[in-house]
Amino acid sequence: MTMEGWIKIHRGLLDWEWYSDTNCVRMALHLLLKANFQTRRWRGITVERGQLVTSRAALARETGLSEREVRTAVSKLEKSDFLTSRATSSYTVVTICNYERYQSTDSTERPAFGPADDQEETNFRPTSDQRATTTEESKKGRSKKSTHTVDTEKGVAGGKTAGPSAELTEAADVLLAWIGERFAQIAAMEEPFTRQQLVWMLRKYDVEDIRRLVAAMDNKGAWKNRSAFCTFTSYAARDHELLTRRQAEAECGRLYTYLQMVQLLPTNGGNYRAEDFETVQTPQGVRWRIRTRRD
């Protein structure tokens, strides 16, 4: 079936943390294109505006990605609060978390991708009845409380600030000078850090963590990328994921993904049986660990 119509894409997409990940961008755009623009009924269930019914196999077929690539991309999009998914034995209902903000016809100033720090506002998705009664309040409040992710106060650089303190501005200038002195190639990137971006970073991260991640960017040759800020957010997200994994392993022991676990089975030359493993729920999803042997 041929789909007609169009969707809006904000230039803030260029500063999205996953913009350098081709599969993530492809999946995000595909889901925006496939999501319902109005509520419909499908096989006895209501599929709301901003939702779609699909499956991993269908997404792989439609995008040309492998099912493994689809799973990885969807997982990243879920972690960044771009979408939520509810799976059944037959299909999966995907919900675009900020669909109204991406595709509303009220204004041309729409957010890019990813959540705002204000989670209560970000995760709110009004029902059909609620949308009719809240439109006017939304219009009035939008100028006072922006949830655009192109707003540096809400998560991605590029928007208007809320007036940083003199102390924070000075700290940003010191950090900018430090980057220029210590890491000239990072400072010379096509889109280098701006004071506004550094102010946002200092609000969100400890200054020593920022310095450590900038040093890691330089060490790994990330200065070859286009955007310093976009690269930093990707490094920060990965750093957080590794820290969370270490904390989980400190509590639960060595954890394995499904593919890592399978590699340890006899069919792949390993010494463990499937029953030697048990599952553990972590912030990154289900992981496997080797059961404690009891004599």
Rank of each mutant, 00 (worst) to 15 (best):
T152E: 14
E153T: 11
K154E: 14
K154F: 08
G155F: 02
G155D: 02
G155I: 08
V156Y: 10
V156I: 13
A157D: 05
A157N: 06
A157Q: 05
G158C: 03
G158N: 03
G159A: 00
K160E: 14
G163Q: 02
P164Y: 09
P164E: 01
S165I: 05
A166S: 13
A166V: 09
E167D: 12
L168N: 04
L168F: 02
L168P: 00
T169D: 02
E170H: 10
E170W: 03
E170D: 09
A171E: 08
A171Y: 01
A172S: 07
A172Q: 01
V174C: 02
L175Y: 05
L176D: 09
L176I: 06
W178V: 01
I179H: 03
I179L: 04
E181W: 01
E181M: 05
F183Y: 15
F183V: 08
A188Q: 10
M189Y: 04
M189T: 03
E190V: 14
E191W: 07
P192T: 06
P192I: 08
T194P: 00
R195C: 01
Q197Y: 03
L198S: 02
V199Q: 04
W200C: 13
M201K: 07
L202Y: 01
R203K: 13
K204V: 15
V207L: 04
V207W: 01
E208D: 14
E208K: 15
D209H: 07
I210V: 12
R211A: 05
R211Y: 00
L213H: 08
V214A: 08
N219F: 12
G221I: 08
G221P: 03
K224R: 14
N225M: 11
R226F: 15
S227F: 10
A228K: 00
F229V: 11
F229G: 07
C230Q: 15
T231H: 02
T231W: 01
A236C: 06
A236H: 03
R238H: 10
D239K: 13
H240N: 12
H240R: 15
L243C: 05
R245Y: 10
R245F: 12
Q247S: 13
A248I: 07
A248C: 15
A250T: 13
C252F: 15
C252V: 07
G253P: 03
Y256K: 12
Y256Q: 05
L259Q: 15
L259E: 15
Q260W: 08
Q263A: 15
L264C: 11
L264G: 04
L265S: 04
P266E: 09
P266R: 07
P266D: 09
T267M: 13
T267L: 11
G269A: 02
G270R: 02
G270K: 01
N271S: 14
Y272L: 15
Y272I: 03
R273W: 12
A274N: 09
E275Y: 10
E275F: 09
E275S: 14
D276W: 05
F277Y: 06
F277Q: 05
